[in-house]
């Protein structure tokens, strides 16, 4: 991406109004106002005022605001006298190395991802089976109705028996699919 931005700094906070009028005219890309309190490390970080024209894309707004936020953060850290690398190290939370111990005393590493992945995969498999069999059931019923097979079948069985048989049959087909894919996954 081409970035060709000229930066201009205004010392007086009175310049905010002129920045707004420049934005309205479309002569500048964006404007921001930083007060002394924002940069004071002893005070809480407050919201910085960002002024943008209505035509500026959300991506550009993100880029400009991220640069300004990061700059304010860097300045606050620099003013506090703390080394940034040390601050990152101090704020870094230690990762727990979890070991599950069974009643028999054996140890096993905790794998949280796997514990979530396996039920997720089975849920997805069940979803596939339900949707595939429901689709088959609907298609074949319409097909039998259209080529008069249904009329022949209805001479031998009641509509309730016919549909119950279809649903039962496709449930069995889904069960076979589930067993096949599930078995393959377990294997």
């Amino acid at each position: 991406q081409v970035i060709s931005v000229e930066w201009r700094s205004e010392k007086s906070l009175d310049a905010v109004e002129s920045v707004k009028s420049e934005l309205a005219k479309g002569s500048i890309l964006a404007g921001a106002a930083i007060t002394g309190d924002m940069l004071d490390p002893a005070k809480d970080a407050t919201a910085l005022a960002l002024f943008i024209p209505s035509s500026l894309s959300p991506k550009h707004v993100r880029q400009v605001s991220r640069a300004l936020q990061q700059a304010v953060e860097d300045e606050r850290i620099a003013r506090s006298g703390i080394d940034r690398a040390m601050l990152t190290r101090l704020a870094d939370q230690p990762e727990p190395l979890t070991t599950r111990i069974s009643p028999a005393g054996s140890e096993a590493k905790e794998r949280t991802e796997l514990r979530l992945l396996v039920p997720g995969a089975f849920m997805f498999l069940l979803w596939i089976c339900v949707f595939t069999s429901a689709n088959y059931l609907l298609t074949t019923t319409i097909e039998e109705k259209s080529n008069k097979v249904m009329e022949v079948l209805l001479a031998a069985a009641s509509p309730m028996q016919l549909l119950a048989g279809k649903i039962l049959g496709y449930s069995m087909v889904s069960a076979v699919m589930l067993l096949m894919y599930g078995g393959l996954g377990i294997a």
């Binding site: 081409v2 700094s9 700059a71």
Partner: peptide
């Protein structure tokens, strides 16, 4: 789209512009 234009920062301390410029130009 290219990001082209002028950004005006009202900052009495005059310290934000060099930092923001460096951050924005870093890929």
């Amino acid at each position: 789209p290219p990001l082209v234009g002028t950004i005006v920062v009202v900052d009495p301390s005059d310290t934000i512009v060099p930092r923001a410029k460096a951050i924005l130009e870093t890929p």
